[in-house]
Design a protein around this nucleic acid. Structure first.
Lengths: 235, 235
DNA sequence: ATACTTGTGTGTCCGTCGGACACTGGGTGT
DNA sequence: ACACCCAGTGTCCGACGGACACACAAGTAT
């Protein structure tokens, strides 16, 4: 079954030293080429033929190493996200650690603007991706949040990263910075008075798609919950 | 230019009563058929031929009414999201109003599970979609947040809706509820101890993908900021 | 009544996509 | 010397979005 194969390639032991590996083509080389294409021309340009062409090989040769395009994308993601960080050395408790985690995550996603597009839809999550989650959930141990809450908190945070990054590269909800909509907003200012006024009062301000704002709001919200838990337990 | 056409169809006056309109095929009928397909079989099944087939018509006939598939999708979205709500009647100030807004938004997005998939990537935002944003931004007037912050807040909230909804229908980061990953997590519990422990402590709990959790955290976070603004201004 | 125009739907074609399948040619183990 | 194995090739398929020329009806001008 395809999904089993995919999971096997992602999760199985990648140690097959039995074969001497006289391979010109390897999964890693393929993934690297695909990432090059995606970085340079976006996820839409990642086709089997494009990737194969970059390796001077037929597209069908790729299928000797990956079972499907979905698996290729999965391998791309695993390769791109890199090893999850160890945050234990970051001082100051959960909040600075989560900030560090979010910054690292954001850096990675900025290096590979196709990650939002590649990680939407049904797919098998790879170990490194889970590792990133693990490292954030671990930060929240001992904060008074229960297991589900810890996972929800990390989901909330990583979702925020995905959203801001999607907008930055593609324009999911490009209310700002995209002049086409800005013009439309101005033309229809009677229809959208609150938006128009809000947009007016931020003209020229350096936009980061609400990255810092959302991050601080989420962390503040978590802190509120933790304090409530503390006082509740102490009571 | 294609994007101009798209914007025209979305934003232009749809009143062309000059022609008597003896049309069997209309943009609205096409959009309705496309939404039927998407609701039933997902966004991946929305192709020009599928939609045309449902209307007993050739796919090329559709191109008389929409300029491209991208425009068809844009019209689908506008039709699916519906008219934005008027929240002025909701009592209790900004917070209950935002909750109401989020609930309405979530209902809509649940009725059309393909919306997350359709609204990713570069595209022109339609007036109704902007209307939803308008109505949320309006709720935040007079809360002490400046224009950019109001927009960031709404972006944060709508991003959360999108994320939870994506996961519910497609499995963007399905750490939970997807038994395949659950099994993997159990097999690799030594590698992901924090995640494993967090998952253990929520076994059987009714999952909503962190919807309520994230919503409350975001609103708490906004409240913290507003209080800080208030006391700062009073000081 | 007839010819012209306008606009709606059709038929055919193209390039690209993911992928199935049969093949080939250069190693390696016996 | 031999057969086997397997990475890479070549060809083919159906589905996709879309260009383009055409058919054909209805309305208008003459």
């Amino acid at each position: 079954m395809a999904s089993e194969d995919r999971a096997d390639l992602l999760w199985g032991s990648r140690e097959k030293p039995a074969r001497p590996a006289r391979l010109a083509l390897t999964v890693d080389r393929i993934a690297a080429a695909a990432i090059e294409v995606a970085d340079a021309e976006g996820m839409a340009s990642v086709s089997m033929q494009q990737v194969a062409g970059r390796l001077d090989v037929t597209k069908m040769a790729l299928y000797r190493h990956v079972a499907s395009k979905a698996e290729l994308v999965a391998v791309m993601i695993e390769s791109a996200v890199g090893e999850p960080p160890d945050l234990r050395a970051v001082p100051g408790g959960w909040r600075p650690r989560l900030v560090r985690w979010a910054d690292l995550m954001r850096e990675t996603w900025q290096r590979h603007p196709w990650l939002p597009a590649a990680t939407t839809g049904e797919r098998v999550t790879g170990p490194r991706e889970v590792g990133w989650t693990e490292s954030a959930v671990a930060v929240l141990e001992g904060t008074g949040l229960d297991g589900g809450e810890r996972m929800d908190a990390v989901f909330l945070l990583s979702g925020h990263i995905r959203n801001t990054q999607s907008v930055a590269t593609a324009g999911t909800q490009p209310w700002t910075a995209q002049k086409q909509l800005r013009t439309i907003l101005h033309e229809h200012r009677d229809r959208f008075p609150a938006l128009h006024e809000a947009a007016q009062s931020t003209n020229g301000a350096p936009r980061d798609n609400g990255w810092e704002f959302g991050l601080n709001r989420i962390l503040d919200g978590l802190e509120v919950l933790m304090r409530a838990r503390d006082s509740g337990a102490a009571r």
